[in-house]
Deep mutational scan, measured.
Amino acid sequence: ENVVSAPMPGKVLRVLVRVGDRVRVGQGLLVLEAMKMENEIPSPRDGVVKRILVKEGEIVDTGQPLIELG
């Protein structure tokens, strides 16, 4: 699984990683606000951040690609 998608609609509050960062399974990639709750979106696997597909403040839909892992 190379693309991390939004599990719910919401607003991207914070991106916690940068392109080139090594991440571990379960590590927070970004914080999504949904229904006034902050939800940290975890990495599904170990890898390297290849691309960040959203910006802070952006509104996303369920299933929208957020981050690509390499």
Rank of each mutant, 00 (worst) to 15 (best):
E1G: 00
E1W: 00
E1I: 00
N2D: 15
N2E: 15
V3P: 11
V3Q: 11
V3K: 01
V3T: 14
V4K: 05
V4F: 05
V4E: 13
S5T: 11
S5M: 13
S5G: 12
A6S: 06
A6L: 11
A6I: 05
P7K: 13
P7A: 10
P7Q: 07
P7L: 14
P7S: 11
P9V: 09
P9D: 04
P9M: 14
G10H: 12
G10S: 09
K11S: 14
K11I: 12
K11Y: 10
V12R: 00
L13E: 15
L13N: 10
L13I: 08
R14G: 12
V15A: 13
V15N: 10
L16G: 11
L16E: 15
L16N: 11
L16S: 13
V17Q: 07
R18Y: 03
R18T: 04
R18N: 07
R18K: 12
R18C: 01
V19E: 15
V19A: 13
G20Y: 02
D21E: 03
D21I: 01
D21F: 01
R22A: 05
V23W: 03
V23T: 09
R24V: 05
V25N: 15
V25H: 14
G26K: 14
Q27L: 06
L29K: 00
L30R: 00
L30C: 01
V31F: 04
L32C: 00
L32V: 10
E33A: 14
E33H: 07
E33P: 12
A34R: 05
A34C: 00
M35Y: 06
M35E: 05
M35L: 09
K36W: 07
K36Y: 08
K36D: 05
K36S: 05
K36Q: 06
M37W: 12
M37T: 09
M37K: 04
E38A: 07
E38K: 07
N39D: 07
E40N: 11
I41K: 04
P42I: 14
P42E: 07
P42M: 14
P42G: 12
S43F: 03
S43W: 08
S43V: 09
P44A: 12
P44Y: 15
P44G: 14
P44L: 12
R45L: 15
R45V: 15
G47Q: 03
G47F: 03
G47L: 02
G47C: 01
G47P: 00
V48Y: 06
V48F: 03
V48K: 03
V48S: 06
K50E: 14
R51T: 12
R51L: 14
L53N: 10
L53C: 00
V54C: 01
V54R: 05
K55D: 11
E56F: 03
E56L: 06
E56R: 04
G57I: 07
G57S: 05
G57N: 12
E58K: 04
E58I: 10
E58R: 12
E58A: 14
E58S: 03
E58C: 01
I59G: 03
I59N: 08
V60M: 10
V60Q: 13
V60A: 12
V60C: 01
V60I: 05
D61I: 07
T62Q: 13
T62L: 02
G63V: 14
G63F: 11
Q64E: 05
Q64N: 07
Q64M: 11
P65C: 01
P65D: 14
P65M: 07
L66T: 09
L66M: 11
L66P: 00
I67V: 07
I67K: 00
I67C: 00
E68S: 00
E68T: 00
L69A: 15
L69I: 13
L69C: 00
G70A: 07
